[in-house]
Amino acid sequence: MKGFDLAAILGNAEYMAMLAHGIQITFVIAICSWLLAMSLALVLLAIRFSPGRIGNSAVAAYVSYHRNVPTLVQLMLWYFGIYTLLPSGIADWLSAHSAEMVFAIIGLGLCQAAYFSEDLRSGLRSISPGQMEAARALGHGYISAMRYVLIPQGVRNALPALVNHSVSLFKNSSLAIVIGAPELSHAVKEIENLSFRTFEIYLIGTVLYLVFSLIIMAAGAWLTWRADPLNGASR
């Protein structure tokens, strides 16, 4: 066992390049799947709030599946399972364009969409029906009442949960190691294999994850504070 020496990692240009690449991939996965999750969540929410039994139960089934199956298993099903079912043209194109990242983004995004849509839904549901009635009585149309009265309040109520789930999305990007995406924890493992300085590199990886998560949490807390009308939100 060698003595504790952070400089052996931090001073090594090759290791630092690997770490930087890992961080970059982690952010690509996290940001792309966040965008996918949020846009899909809005679609799911629209279906949930529109009349029609079939759409409603389809969304409920979607949410139930993604909340009750471990994210890791979902990723494995995508990468080891669905990937092999694709027509060979698409599969070849994917394997030439880092398929593991594509599937990490799809898997994490679809999974998190279920959580986001539930957050938004419970945020909107927590507003009393009187708000809609009052807005309509004041002459707003349905869309305009949604846009100016219900959605601002609903999103504000949903913000803490959305922030928490964004942090878990960021943390879950580490699961992509299982399907071989070269993200941060993958880089940490590789540097460990090359340098044998397990303690140092794990410490660096942990601190990096912690710092990024805390930044997201702080940004979320600031957003939540800003969104409160008492603190000078725009509307």
Partner: peptide, 18 residues
């Protein structure tokens, strides 16, 4: 509590394995 909330479980698994 903040460390466990901010660090992926995967990282903690690797730590205990070591």
């Amino acid at each position: 509590v903040y460390v466990t909330r901010g660090v992926p479980l995967l990282m903690l698994v690797l730590w205990s394995y070591f």
